[in-house]
Design a protein around this nucleic acid. Structure first.
Length: 789
DNA sequence: TCGGTTCAGAGTATT
DNA sequence: TCTGAACCGA
């Protein structure tokens, strides 16, 4: 144990060895967060305070879960595979498989990824003849996921208008469709297991008693439902150890609710709040910049990073004349670094939006510098892989209509859209799945072809019944006709490779799970987890019967587990490793990573901070946190660059440098280009976005529209102002006390940002984005708005 | 069923 | 400017 706790600093040690009580650890960037989490678990187990089965540790990404598992197995002589360490979705999947009956799901339920979900929604809209112009599938998906992430079923959603009513109806219909098909989407995994625990007292009591320690990573990223889920799981004997950093909360747009941190502190009566502020990553000038910048955010729990590593080099700032020139400069700098012996893989080039990578890639390519771009298609998202998985899914669960439609005519077997529609009609009439409808259909050429398809799936299932998973996958890949189909394609070779890789992935999956390679793919097995579970899992008999713990419940078959794995872990999304390359990625993708040298590019108003964020509640603060994350990625050297002009959407935009540059401490910066003065009047942190993004550039005027200060005067004076700008400007000439971009408060809806203003006098209306409460038009003569400063 | 054309939209993203 | 999706004709 001595060496377990060795080399921890005072605060880290305190966090690791906290008593059996709820705790909130505010872990700054580079402060050893993962180390504290894993050491805490190891320490608890090693000192006999909890058995491995009594620990539940939850993360957001598979990568984080893997890292935690790996570090733990290095610290402890136990097999951490049997422990409940995983992503929210992975753990929910585990619960639902074990208690599928109580959760009203088939044991073989399939998991829809985002693309599957969208396809299912489109299918739903089509079947119900819904105008998808008026109700775009993507909006509906967003709505459904948003509701689920708030823990709301369709019946719980407050209907505010007719348009919204339709969404709620479709939400209900969507859930029915999923239930009928035996599929669940990502949000459903969470919601369903939450409801399972909520409604099933014996089950809840059992798991609450079992998990004496619940540890949460990246707590600032939890959404409303995840927090509710944690509250449901935490019983009177449970200590929740939440680790997070409110300053690194950059995922509000996907439902993360930083407010959970304060709520946790309050609702769990947290007495142990520990701040990890010593940074082991960056030199002091870099941390100075990070601290100085983030201090501007009003809503913070408060934290200041420090290091004893020394001042290091000042942060370099460069002003380019164009985006292309910015890339050229960057290449020269990078060449210099490489020449000095820096590894290319230790140099990262960050940008706010993916579109910015093109110019950079073009320049790097021309210069012959190897680079890797993060993002893009992942292994299990590739079309050919999804096709193969669809066959496997159909074998496992014939009711999976999404899988059916994906491969019913792929490879082409003469089943056209017309035929498919007929099946869909028949299925709807009979209230069955497409697969079952085909089985019920008689006669006709179409039925013949369809019948052949169903027979194919049946045959595949029979032929693979006794085969181990990898061989079963290989058999399906071959006999489904996929390989043959891609052989006829010009560029099908890569796809065939990926199909072969899928066979390898299946084999790798088995060994990762500790399942023997000999077990037939579709036979339930007991994994190491069950064997390891031990006496701690003897569930207390209850009035309603005995609770069978997930670890001793029959396990799903290797195939079912593999399919879940494929949905829950989309695989790598970065170019294969190999040659030493520069690392290109968005700032979001860089979170959690670190590099010796970091370039943050495109530091321009409208781009970073992004213009769209001005329309969101607390949008600017989130952008600032994003900048904070970017800065704290750098160990030794940090470059910040921006460009006077940038090609965007086919037009040259004339930029003003990012306000974030003005928010950094002079003393820690070194301008590589002369620092020009800027008229900064008109800046407004309170929600306003007075910068003249709208006008600048389109008229060809370099003069920023807001140079004069306030929006209206600036616009009025600018030459060649567009019609849109005049329309905008006119909104400020009516003497209304409101302006676009302003943050306001409403008694019922909370804080919002004004998006638009229409009419005048008693007719005046404002459109306000209230975030989760939605976008609303409010009549100013009725609604009471207050300015938020 | 595929391939070309047209059109809108263009922010960040894990499971 | 560029991309992806939808659509139409062969």
């Amino acid at each position: 144990m001595a060496n377990l706790l060795a080399n921890l600093n005072e605060r880290q040690l305190a966090a690791v060895t906290l008593p059996h009580q709820h705790a909130l650890i505010l872990a700054g960037a580079g402060s050893g967060k993962t180390r504290v989490l894993t050491t805490r678990i190891a320490w608890l187990i090693q000192t006999g305070q909890v058995s491995p089965a009594g620990v539940l540790a939850v993360t957001f990404t598979n990568k984080a879960a893997r890292e935690m598992t790996a570090r733990l197995s290095a610290m402890l002589p136990i097999n951490p595979r049997g422990m409940w360490i995983g992503t929210f979705h992975g753990l929910c999947n585990r619960l639902l498989r074990a208690h599928h009956r109580d959760a009203a799901l088939p044991q073989t339920f399939q998991i829809l990824d985002s693309a599957d979900q969208l396809a299912a929604i489109k299918r739903l809209l089509k079947a119900r003849n819904v105008d998808d112009e008026k109700y775009p599938p993507r909006n509906l998906m967003h709505f459904i996921n948003g509701c689920k992430e708030d823990g709301l079923r369709a019946k719980d959603v407050e209907v505010v208008d007719d348009y919204n009513r339709r969404f709620v109806e479709l939400y209900a219909a969507y859930d029915e469709q999923c239930q009928r098909e035996g599929v669940v989407d990502f949000a459903e995994l969470l919601l369903r297991s939450y409801e399972l625990l909520e409604r099933n007292l014996p089950l809840r009591t059992h798991y609450q008693a079992r998990f004496r320690h619940v540890l949460v990573d990246e707590f600032q990223d939890t959404n409303v439902l995840q927090y509710k889920w944690l509250k449901m799981l935490a019983g009177p004997q449970t200590a929740v150890f939440a680790v997070g950093d409110d300053d690194q909360s950059i995922y509000a747009f996907r439902g993360a609710n930083v407010g959970n941190m304060a709520a946790f502190e309050r609702e769990f009566r947290v007495e142990n709040l520990i701040k990890l502020e010593q940074n082991y990553r960056s030199h002091a000038h870099i941390l100075e910049c990070a601290n100085h910048l983030i201090r501007r955010n009003a809503s913070r729990l408060g934290k200041e990073l420090w290091t004893d590593a020394g001042a290091g080099e000042p942060v370099r700032v460069y002003e380019a004349t164009s985006d292309g020139q910015e890339a050229q400069w960057l290449i020269e700098e990078a060449r210099g670094l490489i020449g000095e012996g820096w590894m290319r893989s230790d140099v990262a080039i960050l940008y706010r939006s993916n579109a910015q990578s093109r110019v950079l890639e073009h320049a790097l390519f021309s210069a012959g510098i190897p680079y890797r771009v993060y993002g893009g298609l992942r292994f299990f998202e590739r079309a050919e892989v999804k096709h193969a998985l669809a066959y496997l899914r159909l074998m496992e669960n014939p009711d999976d209509d999404t899988a059916f439609l994906r491969v019913v005519n792929f490879p082409a077997r003469g089943i056209g859209a017309r035929t498919v529609e007929q099946v869909q009609d028949a299925a709807r009439a009979a209230g069955t799945s497409l697969y079952a409808a085909v089985a019920a259909m008689r006669g006709g050429a179409a039925a013949g072809k369809l019948g052949a398809f169903v027979a194919l799936v049946e045959r595949l299932r029979a032929e693979t019944a006794a085969l181990p998973l990898p061989e079963a996958v290989e058999h399906v890949v071959e006999r489904s006709g996929l390989v043959a189909h891609y052989q006829t394609e010009k560029e099908g070779q890569d796809r065939i490779e990926n199909l072969r890789e899928l066979v390898n992935a299946a084999a790798a999956f088995l060994s990762e799970q500790g399942v023997s390679q000999d077990v037939p793919a579709n036979v339930g097995v007991s994994t190491g987890a069950a064997a390891q579970a031990g006496p701690a899992l003897d569930a207390p008999p209850d009035a309603d019967g005995v609770v069978v713990d997930a670890d001793v419940a029959p396990q799903a078959s290797p195939l079912a587990s593999f399919l879940a794995h494929a949905s829950l872990e989309a695989g790598d999304n970065q170019a294969a490793e190999g040659t030493d390359s520069l690392q290109l990625m968005t700032v979001h993708a860089a979170k959690g990573l670190e590099f010796d040298a970091v370039f943050i590019t495109g530091l321009e108003e409208g781009l970073f901070p992004h213009e769209n964020s001005a329309q969101e509640v607390d949008g600017l603060e989130e952008e600032r946190r994003l900048m904070y994350v970017a800065i704290t990625r750098a160990r030794k050297r940090l470059y910040l660059s921006f460009s006077q002009t940038r090609m965007l959407h086919g037009q040259t935009r004339y930029n003003v440098r990012s306000r974030f540059l003005e928010e950094l401490p002079e003393g820690s910066m070194k301008w590589l280009t002369p620092r020009t003065g800027l008229a900064r009047a008109g800046w407004d942190d309170g929600g306003g976005w007075n910068a003249g993004w709208n006008g600048a550039g389109r008229g060809g005027a370099r003069e920023p529209a807001w140079s004069g200060g306030g929006r209206s005067s600036g616009l009025g004076d600018a030459p060649q102002v567009s019609a849109a700008d005049r329309r905008l400007a006119s909104k400020f000439d009516r003497g209304l006390p409101w302006r676009v971009g302003q943050t306001v408060a409403h008694a019922k809806f909370g804080e919002g940002v004004i998006l638009d203003i229409e009419g005048s006098g008693t007719d005046a209306r404002v459109q306000v984005n209230f975030g989760k409460q939605g976008v609303k038009w409010l009549a100013l003569s009725v609604a009471k708005l207050e300015a938020v400063t």
